[in-house]
Structure formats: C-alpha cells, structure tokens
Design a protein around this nucleic acid. Structure first.
Lengths: 151, 151
DNA sequence: CTTTATGCAAAGTTTTTGCAGATCA
DNA sequence: TGATCTGCAAAAACTTTGCATAAAG
C-alpha cells in the first residue's frame, strides 16, 4: 500500500470515528495524523513532538498525548511498551500484525510474524476459556551485529 | 520446591552474586529478599513496601528500588510491564518460565507455558541470527468471568 | 579503615488533568 | 450557540539520584 493511500485511509477512518461520536476533526488532529502516517512507522511520543516542532507545528504536549490516545481508540495506532517506561506507537492501518525482536545492546527492533504461534495462542485461549483481544510478544536478546560484543 | 527451600536458594544465590562483586549483604537486603521469597510470587514495588512496613520493617523507598534492581541483576527476579507504567516483579528462582494471559476488565493474570511456542521462537531467532536472552508474551482479552459482561 | 550502602528529600521522566479561553459542527 | 478542544501549567505516578552519614568486610 503506498504511503499516500495509507494517509488517505487513515484520515477517512478517523473522520468516521469522530463523526459517529460527534467529536471534532480539528487542525491539530489533522496535523498530528499527517505527521504520523506520512512517514514513520514506529515512534515515541516525544520524538513525534520534536519532529512536529521541527516542521513549525506547535501543538502542545497535552494535545499530542490526547490525540495519540484517540488514534489508539480509533484503531489506527497500537501502543507498545518494550520494557521501557514510555510508549512506542505503531501503525495498524497499512501494516499487518506482527511481533518484535528487540536488541538489548543497540535497541534495534525487528519485526516478525508467525502463523503457527498465533494458532497455538488461540489454542491456549480456548483452554483458558479466554476471549483474546490482542497480544504482545517480544523476544529480547542480541542482534547479529551485537552478539559478538557481548560476553 | 517448598518455599523455605526457595528462600534458602535465593539467599545463597544472592550471597554468591554479592561476594563475587565485593558488594555487601546488608540487613536491608536480607529483609527484602525474605519478604520477596517467603510468600508472594507476583508483586509491585509499592505493595511490597506496604507489606514490609506492615511487618515493622522500615526500609526506605530508595533502598527498596535499589534492591529490586539488584535482585533482577542477580537473576532472582524478573521485571515485567503489563502495559502499565509501573513494574511487576516475579520470582525466577523456584518458578519455571511462563507467559501471561491478562484480563482487560478485572486485571486478573493467569500463567501458561507452551513448549511448541518456545520452539517456534527459537526458529525465528535462528532465522534472524539473533541470540535470544528471554522473551515476554502476554495475551490480553477477557477471562471466562468477564467475557459475558463485555459488549 | 576503605568501600559500599542507607535514608532523606529533591529531581527526573513520562503522562495526565483542571481550567479558562478558543473553536468546530 | 453549545459541546468539544486546545494550551498552559500544575499534578500525578513511579522511579532515580545526590549527598551526608552509617555500616559491612
């Protein structure tokens, strides 16, 4: 899916979400959405704010956090905690579900997805009479570039 | 493994860790270790502090946090973030590796472990030339008691 | 007696909130 | 025009840190 299409789809999805709830599509929300869906896939709130500021867009921290929460509620973003105290956000739209491999030394994050694991997770939920909504899985260790530097 | 044995093992492991690094086995460290390994398996820093205070043990917050970090480094505890901004801690010693199922409504956490998933994770790491150290996996959804209350 | 640990209070980090004024539908 | 938003600054929640004093090895 080309990036412009993704942005278009994201705007449409957010517009629908807002309209249904009689919420407003403000310029701030549009600018943040744009910045989120035009480029990067994986980001932290603070880095996003810096990027916005760099483009001369002066939304407040409060609005940024409120908007990110809104985008999560609207199903456009996924919020992740990779063992750190701050959140990472990822696109849902235009990006299939996947899990993560995180390097403990350089911090690099790679993605993977595995149908067999998903299927086994479903088995587990059935056994626990649990109705799954989503899952998070991350494997922590050392990437090929960092594994040799480690003791 | 009976609980008393676990505590014994934990003390031995910590003592070894400290000795090697010429660190000290202070009364505070011993008391915290005891409170951690005598009973509960799954706890939050603040709840632990309250429990200690309830037993008349007045370690400071600073020492508590420093000691928990030490126990993680020494391989006795695992630190988990279940999508909240505070940590949960779990025993490693006396407790086999497992993953979690978390109820989004009542917050209940159940454990599971699955050899097939672990094996598939190893495959993935091999394919990424990644040297895994540990992983975290949590499935979020609704438990049998809460699934009916949800829309 | 030297190095490491503790307690206190203050600072830090990331995120949330109350409120008054601004703005969208 | 009325409900929702924004920005600000202050609060919140959790954890970390600097420093003086205490204590382990």
């Amino acid at each position: 899916m080309p990036q412009a299409r993704v942005l278009e789809g994201a705007e449409a999805q957010l517009a629908r979400y807002l309209r249904r709830r009689r919420l407003k599509f403000t310029p701030e929300r549009r600018l943040i959405l744009r910045e989120v869906f035009e480029h990067h896939d994986h980001f932290e709130a603070d880095a996003l704010l810096v990027r916005l500021r760099g483009r001369g867009i002066a939304v407040s921290k409060a609005t940024l956090y409120r908007t990110l929460a809104l985008l999560v509620r609207a199903g456009l973003l996924r919020q992740e905690l990779f063992g750190e105290r701050h959140s990472h956000y990822e696109h849902i739209l235009g990006h299939a579900h996947h899990d993560h491999v995180v390097c403990l030394r350089c911090g690099k994050v790679a993605e993977f997805s595995n149908k067999d694991i998903e299927r086994l997770q479903d088995d587990i939920c059935r056994r626990h009479a649990f109705r799954p909504q989503f899952h998070r899985m991350a494997i922590y260790g050392y990437c090929s570039e960092c594994r040799d530097e480690e003791a």
